[in-house]
Design a binder for these strands. Structure first.
Lengths: 172, 172
DNA sequence: CGACACATGTAACACGTTACATGATTTG
DNA sequence: CAAATCATGTAACGTGTTACATGTGTCG
């Protein structure tokens, strides 16, 4: 956001929340601690205006870092410790029976969660001439879409796991 | 793991790594700090054997907590702060042109990453009578599967984002 | 005999996060 | 005038993570 133009701390909070469709509430305090740390590392600089309020500006170093961030694809080596994966792997370690129990429970929980999310997904593109969503509505919609797509992926993965486990444990 | 039977700290490290197919290396030090914290919270208890070595046992309280964990589906409210989502939403905030650039770059990066992973996926189920993978091999395979499925989901999502943005910015 | 696995820990840091405290300005 | 919004911060905590230090046993 600072790349756009300098901002106040509080402003960053409100704009962040509107940019993310209100799904990610942000404690203001965290904005200030983060800004302090960014300043410590030389990524932003701060100046106090006549009104005692603090304007934060991104530095050259900060712009460079940001450029890298825009390009970077979220790292994967080692793969991020994911709770679901961990849970399934540990369940397997615990024995196939236990693993199957955990898997089916996770699967049914995820299925109903998915249905809820599909229903929650704002159905705003009914008529063909309705204007596409913008701003906060768009952001909220995209987040929901992402959560749905990810849940579907997890579900598919759980099915793969079940298949592999029954294949390994059943007919042997 | 402790639910199975009491273990040494070092043992937890090695077993964790083998249970996760070697994809998640674990600093031993972390095992001990974590065990200390678990003991502090009353989830495990420790006793020193005659050989000066420390055996960690799960407590009743710990078993209860673990039971909850097995059942729980990874929380989602508010949705986890995800780097990719954040990046896309911030790119949109920055303007459609910038967003499209970021999106296509992310998409191509993810596509090639996906191809690499698909190739890396150990093709061990060639012959129909080969025994299914077990232990470490199974774990490693499942992790790869998960990463692939998730990457596919991210890719689909990126396409949805592109569609919505071009629909919102192009013909308007 | 030297390297490696086994085994245990400590100190320190960064980061995300929250609870709390304070004051100015705007608006119903 | 009271409540909400704007605006700024601090102290503290928990956790993930690493670097470092130390010692025993075993095996080629």
């Amino acid at each position: 956001m600072l790349q756009d133009e300098p901002r106040y701390g509080y402003q960053l909070k409100t704009e962040f929340e509107s940019a993310t469709g209100g799904v990610w509430p942000l404690n203001v305090g965290q904005v200030y601690t983060t800004l302090d740390r960014l300043e410590r590392d030389g990524f932003v600089s701060m100046e106090v205006g006549d009104d005692e309020q603090k304007l934060y500006t991104i530095t050259v170093k900060g712009v460079g870092e940001l450029g890298d961030w825009w390009e970077a694809v979220p790292a994967d080596d080692p793969p991020p410790r994911d709770e679901l994966m961990l849970k399934v792997l540990m369940a397997i370690e615990h024995g196939p029976e236990h693993a199957l129990g955990v898997l089916t429970r996770q699967r049914s929980a995820l299925t109903s969660l998915l249905q809820i999310r599909r229903r929650e997904r704002t159905p705003l593109d009914r008529s063909p001439d309705s204007s596409p969503p913008t701003g906060e509505a768009l952001a909220a919609r995209l987040v929901t879409d992402a959560l749905i797509v990810r849940a579907e992926a997890d579900l598919r993965w759980l099915e793969v796991c079940e298949a592999r486990i029954t294949a390994g444990a059943g007919p042997r």
